[in-house]
Structures are given as C-alpha cells and as structure tokens.
Design a protein around this nucleic acid. Structure first.
Lengths: 191, 191
DNA sequence: TCAATATTAGTACTATTGTACTAATATGTA
DNA sequence: TACATATTAGTACAATAGTACTAATATTGA
C-alpha cells in the first residue's frame, strides 16, 4: 500500500471513531487532526473538506460491512447459524452500542435531518444488512415477502434496542432485549 | 401570562422545532434568533446559554408529554383503546417522524454520546412513556413484569421504526410497521 | 406620579470553525 | 543522477460560533 493510502486510511479510521463517539457535527476538523496525529495541512491534502471525510467514512463502513457479511457467509453454512451470529455480534458490541448507539443508526439519524446525500449513503449500509438478513430468512424456508418482513422486523428491533439502551445507558436492557431477538430466528415458520 | 413568560415560551418553541428538524449541534444560536424573530440580546436575557435553552426545551417536552398522556387517560376508559390511541398518534405524525425521526429518540441519540446531563433529561421523557405503556398493559391483565416487558417491547419497536423510516425516508414502511404494532396490543394474554 | 425592575435591541468580543495557501520534504521514475 | 510528483507541515484567512455588555424602552408597584 502506498504511503498516501495508508495516511488516508488512518484519517478515515480516526474520523470514523470520532463521528461515532461524538457525532458528526460535534466533531471539529481539529478533533480529527488531533486524533490522527498529523498536521492539518496533511489532512486537507487527502480530503479537501470535512464532508469529503464523511463520505469516505461511510464508504469505509459499507466496505467493512460487506466484508463481515461475506465472512459469515463463508464461515457458516446454515442460515439460522448465520442469523445467530449476527445477533451474537450485537451482544459482543454491547458496551459500545449501549454507550454510543448503533454507528449507522445514530449517524443516519443525525445526518438524515439535513443532508439528503449522506442520508442516501447511510441508506446503503442499511440495505446491505437488510438484504443479507432477508436472504437468510429465505434460506430458512420463508417466502420472499415473509423473509423481507422478518428481516425488516429484526433490523427494526435491533435499532430500537440500541436507542433505548443508549438512552438508559443500560447494558442489561440491551442484552436482555437482544436475547429476545433470538426467538425470532428460531421461531417456527408460518407462526 | 407575563410578557417575559410569553417570550420565553416562543424561544423554547422555536428551539424545539430547530433541534428536532436540524439537530442540536447543527442548530446555531443565530438560527434560533432568526426563527424567533427577536433580537439576540433578548434571547440571551431569557436564557444565558444555548445549553440553558436545551434544558428548557427538554423540560417543555416532558410537560407536553405528561399533558398528552393525561388527556388520553381522561378521554379513554379502556387500556386497549388508550394503547391504540398511542399507536394512532404515531401514524398521525408519520410525515414528520419519517422525515426527522422521533424527536426524543434522535435528540437522545445525538446528545447521549457526549453529554451525560442531557442524556438523563431525555431519559425522563422516555420514562414517562414507558411507565404509561406499562400501566396500560397492567390494566389489560398482564403481570407487573409482563407489562413492563410489553411496554419496553412496544417502545423499542416504535423507536426502531422511526430510525428505519427516516433512513429510507419512506412513509409506507413507517405506516406498515406501525400497523404491525397494533397486533401487540390486541394479542391474547400469555401467548 | 415616579422610581425600580423587567424586557428588548444592538453591538462587541474572543475563540473556534472549516478551508486555502505556501514552502519544505519525501518518494518515485527516467 | 536529476526531474517530477506525492506527501507533509505550518501558517493564514474569512466566517461564524456562543456569550457578554451597554443602552434604550416597557412595565410594574408604591
């Protein structure tokens, strides 16, 4: 990897962390500069504006999400195992999810209010996950329409749990509610 | 009502609107000044800081929420009617909820990341609604624990729906999913 | 009434915002 | 090697942030 690409990546990672932990608007350009540990001029060389960094961060999240979903596809043969894997990943991340909410959900909530472009970008991460969930339910024997419903339902509840857990800053609520989601996966078809 | 109280209220209402539609950090002090239509000095006379306005806005939301819940309690005798009323209110507000998300959820998501005080304030609005929902389920015959579960579940899903609908900017997703919630209310006990 | 207080407007101020620009250095290539 | 380009650092800048301050006007109560 070329030197510049390396730097670009470290900028994206630093910004990604800050946008998640502080929100986009709360995060100043200088915060990113400080977090990366390079000069201001260096950052603006690689990204001419804060919005450019945001776009790159979302692109990065899209790629990272694709990567994770692909890994699960490769590592697990059964759809129900994969779905449980998705749910377990929520529990694994409960500390951050409870503290800062869902990275994609909170960013979309913040940006969706005023910025149509970034709403659409966030939208892409959501589509990836929804699509993947739907595919798993399809493999479990649900009809196409039912699978979409299940996926949307599971996703919706996951987002809701993140919001509630963050508001109450309560990991127990988070874990308890997420465990309820497991029932959705193992439920009998056509219930 | 004294003149000053009137002004204070108009400031709160303007800020409330902007915090909802743009988010807290995106909303500048000057935005509020413009929205209220009074001088900058006048605003700082009534609220010495932007954070003070925020606190007042949340207090206002708490009072407004109490008021609405009380009205429902007075107007409807049956708990299931009240719960349907709650759900219908979501559908009534679907346009704004889809465009800007849930006022309380999105504000809490934004502020909960960095500001512990306002997280706790948002927390209060959530408690009011959760408590009320729980009371209704209790009246329907659920046990105390079950009622709490139901309330949390209903609330969680409502929040999740708002996030998804906003991300997709899709009122149909919103209405469809909210209608699913009605099943939660009319479901048989102990299912 | 008049004095005290409440309210409003307008301006000033410092700090910080995001971005632009220049100069220096590193890297790669012919 | 020498040249061109990529990368980095440092500084400068106009614009805006939030708040403080003063003066003018309204309102109130004795």
């Amino acid at each position: 990897m070329k030197q510049g690409e390396q730097t670009k990546l470290s900028i994206i990672k630093a910004a990604n962390k800050l946008f998640y932990q502080q929100g986009f608007h709360k995060t100043a350009f200088s915060d990113i500069v400080k977090e990366v540990g390079l000069s201001k001029g260096n950052i603006t060389y690689h990204f001419k504006s804060k919005d450019d960094i945001l776009t790159a961060v979302i692109e990065h999240r899209v790629e990272r999400t694709k990567q994770i979903l692909t890994t699960w596809d490769q590592d697990y043969a059964n759809a129900d195992t994969r779905l449980l894997c998705f749910i377990d990943s929520l529990i694994d991340g409960k500390s951050a999810l409870t503290r800062y909410g869902c990275p994609n959900g909170t960013l979309a909530s913040e940006l969706g209010k005023s910025n149509e472009l970034t709403r659409q970008l966030s939208h892409r991460v959501f589509d990836l996950i929804r699509q993947w969930l739907s595919t798993q339910f399809l493999a479990l024997g649900y009809s196409s329409e039912q699978a979409n419903d299940r996926a949307l339902d599971l996703f919706t509840r996951g987002q809701g749990i993140c919001v509630l857990a963050q508001v109450y800053n309560d990991e127990d609520i988070f874990e308890l509610q997420v465990n309820h989601l497991k029932a959705l996966v193992s439920e009998k078809i056509n219930s």
